[in-house]
Nucleic acid binder design. Structure first.
Lengths: 166, 166
DNA sequence: AAGTTACGTCAGCCTTGTTGACTTTCCAAG
DNA sequence: CTTGGAAAGTCAACAAGGCTGACGTAACTT
């Protein structure tokens, strides 16, 4: 219960300096994280917002617009602009719901899947390299800390995506 | 050298599914990461870009404009817009260089430090909670993976920031 | 004296986010 | 069967924060 080493554990990893380094690590790593897809997208008519939509439609085929809205955390006007171009250009198909005809169920077309694969190949290549360099133990820690950083609401969204994997 | 379990190690953490979960974890965690400062900033005249500038000026007092440019990875026009308002509103002071009078050395004023503290307190509180929940082992892994994800150029920038820690 | 560097600035554009207002469609409950 | 509200789409306007290109000035370097 003492102020120092409260549970006999070394708490040096909770110093402000360590926390600041963690913050900066997130900042720089996120830049790397988005760099490859951004590079691929530039020149095409699409951007990061399209990538996100395509990713989650791939991830949960048949998802509805409002589902996607919740996951992406943007307004429907914002999402709609993105979705409209994806549909117009034949990357995404919006099927009217069978049960509830107000809903649109979103699917990637062959062309959409092709783009998704290009983007996620690039992004996974970087993740794979990082994972491999750091090792399984580090990867487990990485995932734990990231999960703990999420808002509870988002954490549930995240965990709800199929194949939660331990 | 076989295709399966190449080094006798368990490589299940490198499956596409695991990599995708990692990608999604980054996405959702980054939202949490920026949420608190964003909340504080909204309503003020500032945004995320101002936060970043203030953070790195605090971190490296006396840094020059072009230094900051490199770290933030934006154009000088973009940074200038942000820096101008920070200087006008008395959060940042730009001192003409003693040795090289072309350079401007950036410092936070008392008012600037006050904002920096508000923002970083909020952001560190979340990091601290996440670190505490995950434990020191996990934190080490977290940092390792993030470093491995950075572009080499950015990794050097990151490591160059004082108090590298381990 | 000439060239280069650091910084600032004007103008204009793009992407991606926001509000607010309104319509259409459709399910479900009274 | 009507009606209330949810789901989706759309128009308009705006803001933040990126970008490019073109210039200007002061100061350092060769």
């Amino acid at each position: 219960m003492a102020d120092q080493t409260p549970s006999g554990e070394n708490l040096l990893f909770l110093t402000d300096e360590q926390l600041r380094k963690g913050i900066e690590a997130m900042f720089f790593a996120y830049r790397g994280f988005t760099a490859d897809p951004d590079r691929i997208l530039e020149g095409m008519d699409y951007g990061r917002a399209h990538h996100r939509a395509v990713h989650f439609i791939h991830r949960s085929p048949g998802t509805t617009v409002s589902n996607l809205l919740t996951i992406l955390g943007v307004t429907k006007q914002s999402l709609n602009r993105v979705l409209r171009t994806l549909i117009e250009e034949g990357l995404v198909e919006a099927r009217v719901g069978r049960r509830d005809k107000r809903e649109r169920h979103l699917h990637l077309t062959a062309k959409g899947q092709e783009l998704e694969r290009m983007l996620s190949d690039a992004q996974r290549a970087r993740m794979r390299a990082a994972y491999r360099a750091a090792g399984p133990q580090a990867v487990a820690g990485f995932r734990q800390v990231l999960e703990a950083m999420m808002d509870p609401e988002l954490r549930r969204q995240y965990q709800g995506l199929k194949e939660s994997g331990a």
